[in-house]
Design a protein around this nucleic acid. Structure first.
Lengths: 338, 338
DNA sequence: GACGTTTTTGGGAACGTTTGCACACTTTTT
DNA sequence: AAAAAGTGTGCAAACGTTCCCAAAAACGTC
């Protein structure tokens, strides 16, 4: 803000003290008499003093804020994660700054670098589907920026990570399809770059294997843009239909809703014949028609856990050498009976 | 970041220049020789110099960032608005900081004040449903913080505002219900505090009047928490059903989806008999069952327009005395035939 | 070559904090 | 009674910029 507001200096002058004393009183430092502290606090209250966080950041080289990078806030999963992050961060006196990569590597890098230059104390990030090169993150990390990955994590990066049990979630969903009698189960998934894509594919394969159903690579379709481009998605669906799948297991929020939409639009006659099971954190699934079986990730909790880990890194006295990868269980919400 | 990075001082020392000269070269000021400028820029490039925005903010008392307050990013309408805001802001070299009020007045005030203390250059805000007292905004505004309201705007606040044509949107939706033969049309709406609530109620009334249908206050139910508390919503729906409505016009995103959900849950047998028309920007309406007629707000555009207005205020040379309230048209998306 | 004018550069204060150090004053110890 | 230890305060530097002001350099004119 470009307008006047009372500063430590003003208080010092008004009270005939030095700025150092005032600062110490406000920050509740050790070497300060009860009396002066009371005095300063009372006066500060009176003039409605607000510390200038910018000045503090500059001096201390930290900002008490943490950066978040997600691909889209419009995605229920991510907005729930953000709520989880906020719930912990605010408790611990951190603020959060949210940025969207829109699944673009370039945008992601730009945002991260801007956040870093704004002195964020730590970063929580779910990689974009385009991202392959994470050297820019490595270099920030090497310079001392604490980073915690969630959901979409890189391998070969030694830090805390929080993910869902993607293998089990996929396994359960696929098994559910099989147990309801489906035999030709397609798999629609995200960019191959993503960790979640690989893990979910494995779960799908394992479920097929358990029931002795042959895995057919042609039944797996990847969408580079994670469902952001409807044309890409429709194309994938179109390529899948000739195999006459009776079930589709879909591995991400955007893709799940997008796929149903594409089916309804391009092949309404089969839309109800194909059973769908997919990852989604939409709180509107109950309204969907055709209905579907959904795999819900513990998004809020994931945000909380990631934030706790990040803050522990930020506030650690000594360099951390032991890192954890927390794995949280997903929940299978079975399709309503029709 | 608490780690070393090259500064203007470093460059000055390395090149045997003064910090002032380097600063001028970097900022492309007038009084500087081409030669030195080239030299400095080349070196800056080489050492990958990044200006420290914190220092700049402190010095200039502005931050090239704008604050956004919405109630929930998980709401499609707001996340689309945010995308619109970003699209303009980034073009004009501003960054955005998003905060959520979660429909709480206290949280809203806290967030605004934090943003203000972080030297945001301007504020874009949609009021929370709880907010009645906006004196804290007035006082910031009086101190020089540019504010543009969107969607949920206060009256008696002289500044730019951007809203949807709520009256017409409601009128159209209600008329649509009437034209499809409905006669007992209930209205489920937000907190009475909100500007949108009043405007939408008027549109609803006007449509009823046009077709000589008596307006009955008991058919209007307000939800203080805007659909955030499902109990409140279910209660409202329960109170409406005894009147045997054959149509419901709903005035907000959260309420629309929430109401359908409540109907399905508590009275599945009537859920399909009641025609629903409601405001929502969900991109999943096509999947809903029962289907509904939706009023879509031009959310992205609203964000864009609001941001343009805000930036014009921020960059205005002289105090602005003429303010506009832009009204954008909504779009009625009629229910698919069943 | 002295002088004025213009262009380029440097010195240094300022933005609002925090903090190491020194100093003054009290209290305790010897 | 002097020395030591403890407590509270102030001074001043620092964080990385920007920008006013003055100095220096370059150039033109007579």
């Amino acid at each position: 803000m470009r307008f006047e507001t009372s500063t430590i200096k003003d208080i010092a002058k008004a009270l005939g003290l030095s700025t150092s004393t005032v600062s110490r009183a406000l920050r509740d430092r050790y070497e300060i008499s009860e009396e002066t502290k009371k005095l300063v606090l009372a006066y500060a209250e009176k003039v409605n003093y607000r510390a200038n966080p910018i000045a503090r950041s500059l001096k201390e080289r930290r900002s008490y804020s943490i950066g978040i990078i997600v691909s889209e806030i419009a995605n229920n999963f991510f907005s729930q994660v953000i709520n989880g992050i906020e719930s912990i961060a605010y408790d611990r006196d951190y603020h959060v700054i949210i940025s969207q990569s829109h699944e673009s590597y370039k945008q992601e890098k730009l945002n991260v670098e801007h956040l870093a230059s704004r002195s964020i104390d730590g970063l929580l990030i779910a990689l974009s589907s385009e991202t392959q090169d994470i050297d820019y993150l490595r270099s920030l990390y090497a310079k001392g920026l604490p980073i915690v990955f969630f959901d979409r994590v890189p391998k070969d990066f030694e830090t805390h990570k929080v993910i869902a049990n993607n293998f089990k979630g996929s396994f359960d969903a696929t098994e559910h399809l099989i147990l309801s009698g489906k035999r030709i189960i397609a798999h629609l998934t995200n960019s191959e770059n993503l960790s979640i894509t690989k893990e979910r594919l494995e779960g799908y394969k394992a479920a097929l294997a358990k029931y002795h159903i042959e895995f057919k690579p042609e039944l797996v379709k990847y969408c580079q843009h994670g469902g952001m481009h409807s044309a890409e998605l429709e194309q994938a669906v179109k390529e899948l239909l000739p195999f006459n799948p009776d079930g589709i297991f879909i591995s991400s929020d955007r893709l799940t809703t997008g796929c149903i939409m594409a089916l309804k639009k391009t092949n309404p006659e089969v839309a109800h014949k194909i059973a769908i099971a997919g990852f989604t954190n939409s709180n509107l699934v109950e309204l969907f028609n055709p209905s579907l079986t959904s795999v819900k990730q513990p998004a809020f909790e994931m945000g909380q856990v990631a934030t706790e880990l990040l803050i522990s890194m930020i506030e650690a006295k000594r360099p951390i050498t032991e890192f954890e990868t927390k794995v949280l269980d997903t929940e299978l919400v079975k399709m309503a009976k029709r």
